[in-house]
Design a protein around this nucleic acid. Structure first.
Lengths: 232, 232
DNA sequence: AGGATACAACTTGTATCCAAGCAGAGGATG
DNA sequence: CATCCTCTGCTTGGATACAAGTTGTATCCT
């Protein structure tokens, strides 16, 4: 039986290195390219994506483009209307608020679940990153700052030690990149405030005060993403 | 510009009915069929799925099967190894525990976020369902009970009024169907206990006791899914 | 016999081709 | 002038053909 043998081999391989070795397939390139184009504003919400145009622009056939589009739909970036096309989704105010709220829940819960030791270790690990964040902001290096702040916030979820939760948080964060890009000016204007808010989060960790952490986090998210969050 | 017009039309349409009109495409049929086959044990973890065989069995070409497989991978059912094949994933003990824990967090948080009124209304709405659950279990109607219990637990997440969270919970629940099927015998043996645990959850809602709800829910999940949950 | 190597049979990934469907333009008709 | 209808041009959905990769096996050499 050939299939069984192959299954064994694949299972073994999966055990060896837990990740797919990245084949750099055309479908993946299409996925990252289109996603990047949405993120940097090349394709704006409400725009209709044509498989043909994308395929031509990317120098490949429609097949991998289609594959990428379905994935992008599953990830919430676009909506595919059968036989009509793919529409770049706009995040409604409500959805923005819900995203931020969901992240708030996951991060606060991550910290709450962690032990006092983990919390303190986390604080020690995060504090040195604050300077890098400030530098990125001052240099108006948006991509750099986004990377840093995403890792920063991800740490809180990771503290719970639950990979499933971390994966969920990643998906949410991904959609939120859009927001960070949109609020770039606000970010650059509020350098010290942002860093100070991050610092106060760390302080709540040190003080072993999960409730205070959650409250501070709520304030931080509202300050960053604006008052449109509203009472969720 | 034609694309703009089409985008407008699609946007209008999307506003009309918030959901895609279900085109019953071959890709969707493949998705549901393969997913069902994994759920009912036809394709077991460790098995290698061949696009050719699936396409032949489903009476369609490889194209929609491929599309279905990529979606199934994104949903966590299989792992695709490039140029080698698709392996039905096995849920490790750790992953099982993490899934249950993540659901616990989302449900408990949903209840905690809800107002006292919503909690009471929820209790009133859920209590009449308990009888149906018992009947399904006594009739050994696993599918019926699974549908009921999933709706039951989903209600707690919904209580927070956050659609993003609800969607996340749905994805988790989907993977957990596998567990419920695996534990069918335990379920059928613990009919009264299961219903009683559900009833005590409702009581905690009525008592306006979110903390007690979370504790009861934790106990319930451990009882249902077994002690392998461990201390997450 | 043991090990490296070449081959063969399978797999998936991509390109191309054909069919089906929707949206809009434009004219015929009341 | 309003309304309906057809028809055209576009789109996506699916099927097929082909290219590229991987694995297991047989073979050859040491």
């Amino acid at each position: 039986m050939t299939l069984a043998a192959r299954a064994d081999a694949a299972t073994r391989h999966a055990r060896d290195d837990g990740r797919v070795p990245t084949p750099d397939s055309a479908a993946l390139r299409a996925h990252t390219a289109i996603r990047a184009a949405i993120l940097d504003g090349t394709h704006r919400p409400g725009e209709m994506l044509s498989e043909n145009e994308l395929a031509q622009a990317l120098g490949m056939s429609r097949t991998p483009v289609r594959s990428a589009l379905t994935r992008l739909q599953d990830e919430g970036w676009i909506t595919i209307y059968p036989k009509r096309g793919a529409l770049v989704r706009a995040l409604s105010d409500r959805e923005i608020a819900e995203l931020a709220d969901a992240r708030l829940i996951l991060e606060a819960m991550g910290v709450q679940r962690a032990s006092a030791e983990v919390r303190r270790a986390l604080a020690d690990r995060l504090e040195p990153q604050l300077d890098a964040q400030r530098r990125a902001l001052l240099a108006r290096d948006l991509d750099g700052f986004v990377t840093l702040t995403i890792a920063f916030h991800r740490s809180f979820v990771e503290a719970a030690g639950n990979a499933v939760l971390a994966e969920i948080a990643d998906r949410l964060t991904d959609r939120q990149r859009l927001l960070l890009s949109a609020h770039r000016e606000t970010l650059f204007e509020r350098v010290e405030e942002t860093v100070a808010e991050h610092r106060s989060l760390i302080e709540r960790l040190r003080a072993d005060d999960p409730a205070g952490f959650a409250a501070a986090l709520r304030g931080h998210l509202m300050d960053t993403h604006g008052p449109e969050l509203g009472p969720v």
